[in-house]
Write a protein that binds this DNA or RNA. Structure first.
Lengths: 103, 103
DNA sequence: TCATTATATCTAATTATCTCGATTTATCAA
DNA sequence: TTGATAAATCGAGATAATTAGATATAATGA
């Protein structure tokens, strides 16, 4: 866990906002109709939905999501042409534990 | 509490390092001989000591400390020509609580 | 008062981040 | 196979952060 990179990721308001939105995926993005219900990737939202809500260019959101995945805040899974992202609750919890006990 | 500004402050390695050093002020900086013992500001370290250990320019450390104070990570008190900084444990705790419950 | 020391502020150069549009890659459907 | 759609990557310009050096402010002590 590279806490410095996590702090960097969270220091951008758009990225922090996306992480917050993904706490309530259905409420914030509506149902993901293309996500196969048997896929076992509940809560995953595709790049396009996040891009639309954030209002930044597609390339920006794509790289933001990749960055957040790389530092451990998100996990992703591809189904066909769609890449779905959701929170990595385990790693987020580990980070929160670090902040509480080590910061 | 502006969590975005706190994340920004912590996203810089030098600032994060200073916050860590200030967890053990005596071990990391030695005794602060100029700090009046009756001052009730235990754990406070002057700018010069922090500057020396960090190895960056005095102006840089001064502004970093001001920034960290502004976002609530540090508190400061001036005695004569010296300004002593120490961790604001209450606000750090509140931030850690936010990360654990809201992030 | 004047020189010294500690800290803060200002200015500027370098580097990093943000953001976009264009292109590329991957997948799907006809 | 070809055209369309989704996402990722590339290249570049604008903005912000980092850092240093010079100067300003504040306090001390002779």
């Amino acid at each position: 866990m590279n806490t410095n990179l996590i702090f960097k990721a969270l220091s951008n308001e758009v990225r922090a906002q996306i992480l917050e939105w993904l706490k309530e995926p259905d409420e914030n993005f509506g149902p993901q109709i293309f996500l196969p219900p048997d896929s076992d990737f509940r809560g995953g939202i595709c790049v396009g939905s996040i891009q639309e809500k954030a209002g930044l260019a597609q390339s920006v959101i794509s790289s933001y999501l990749t960055l957040m995945k790389n530092v451990g805040l998100l996990e992703s899974k591809r189904f066909g042409q769609w890449t779905y992202y959701r929170r990595d609750e385990e790693k987020i919890k580990a980070f929160a534990e670090y902040v509480k006990t080590q910061l």
